[in-house]
């Protein structure tokens, strides 16, 4: 079994907490010791949110140091850029191709970085960047809120854990009426990476 350090980042309200809960539980069911630390400030909505998830035979620190993340899962592009220093050089980035414009851009003077800049900086750290169109896929499935599970599906295709474990954990974690939606979202995400 390989030890894996994950950093999930996004914006409050995007479902990063559910995604990191699922990821941690999957680690446990795959036989790892696992820990999940949530880091968020005062915001109910709209602020940056990150979760550190670690899988190992024995996990000590709940937090991962900069430069030691194996897989960065970004639910939003600016957040990928903000947290890229955490990634170990050559690590993997799974990024949702989606923008959420912060208030400092709308009503302040700040500027949202352009795609070219984002891609260039990520490329400085790693050649392994997987873009996932999570929002479009979730929209096609009829609910943009399932984008987080699309991302989980994409992530799962890079890890050596049976699909059945993922699905079992997701089914337990989401309300019964959303099980089908999330199952489809997960599968679509899984294919999204395999095919591209």
């Amino acid at each position: 079994m390989n030890n894996v350090n994950f950093l999930l980042c996004g914006v409050g309200g995007q479902g990063t907490i559910l995604a990191s809960d699922v990821l941690t539980q999957v680690g446990v069911q795959a036989g790892y010791d696992a820990k999940k630390a949530e880091v968020h400030g005062m915001a109910q909505r709209g602020g940056s949110v990150t979760s550190h998830v670690r899988w190992a035979e024995k996990v000590y620190s709940p937090l991962i140091a900069k430069g030691e993340v194996d897989v960065l899962v970004a639910f939003e592009k600016l957040e990928a850029l903000r947290h890229i220093e955490f990634l170990r050089p050559g690590g993997t980035v799974v990024v949702n191709d989606h923008e959420i414009i912060p208030i400092t851009v709308t009503s302040g003077g700040a500027e949202y970085p352009d795609d070219e800049h984002i891609r260039a900086v990520l490329a400085e750290v790693t050649g392994d960047v997987r873009w996932v169109d999570g929002m479009t896929i979730a929209e096609e499935l009829g609910n943009v809120r399932a984008a987080n599970v699309v991302l989980l599906g994409a992530l799962s295709s890079l890890l050596d854990v049976p699909e059945s474990i993922w699905l079992e954990v997701i089914e337990k974690r989401v309300p019964a009426r959303y099980v089908e939606l999330n199952r489809s979202a997960f599968r679509r995400g899984r294919e999204a990476i395999v095919s591209g």
Binding site: A43, G47, P102, A110
Partner: peptide, 11 residues
């Protein structure tokens, strides 16, 4: 990294 200053996301 050659990173520009990023817009903050205050609560």
């Amino acid at each position: 990294l050659e990173k520009r200053e990023l817009p903050a996301r205050p609560p």
